[in-house]
């Protein structure tokens, strides 16, 4: 139960941060990526704010033997660069540039009930399912 409440509260706070930052406005996100046109660099400050806080807190938190409500930390340790990482990230960027939504802000904006957001989130879930089918075919 503690784990569920912790996840809910963290995500709620994350969602509030995304909205305050302007990440839930697809037009603003596209403006941030519009280097060849009318560039709005302000969303770079979202990364600056988030990374400044977390770069410090991450190091402090990882000094603990374990998290408060779970037996151990599960932080990725891979360091290799493979084709999947590069190609997948490139594909994600194309979708991000087209729609102006990345996954978090899309889920937050889902609550507005705007048809465009609903179609985006439904398609995003379909994309996750396609990837699962694709990776099953590839590994056979």
């Amino acid at each position: 139960m503690k784990v569920i409440v912790a996840a809910f509260i963290s995500a709620f706070l994350f969602g509030v941060g995304l909205a305050l930052a302007g990440m839930t406005l697809p037009g603003k996100v596209i403006g941030f990526l519009d280097l060849t046109g009318n560039w709005d660099p302000s969303l770079a400050l979202v990364m600056v704010g988030a990374i400044t806080v977390h770069a410090v807190s991450f190091r402090l938190i990882m000094k603990r033997p374990s998290p408060l409500f779970s037996p151990k930390f599960l932080v990725p340790t891979r360091r290799d660069i493979d084709a999947k990482l590069v190609v997948g990230s490139l594909i994600f960027g194309v979708g991000w540039g087209l729609g102006g939504f990345c996954p978090g802000p899309a889920l937050v904006a889902f609550a507005t009930g705007q048809p465009k957001v609903l179609y985006f989130v439904a398609s995003m879930c379909a994309g996750v399912v396609f990837h699962r089918l694709y990776s099953k075919v590839i590994t056979k």
């Binding site: 963290s10 995500a11 704010g49 988030a50």
Partner: peptide
């Protein structure tokens, strides 16, 4: 606002890591 929003996001991801290690 983007800086504040980003700071809040930083706190949120730190909270999840501290509480459940994810």
């Amino acid at each position: 606002m983007p800086l504040i929003g980003g700071g809040v996001i930083g706190v949120a991801v730190s909270l999840l890591l501290l509480l459940i290690g994810r």
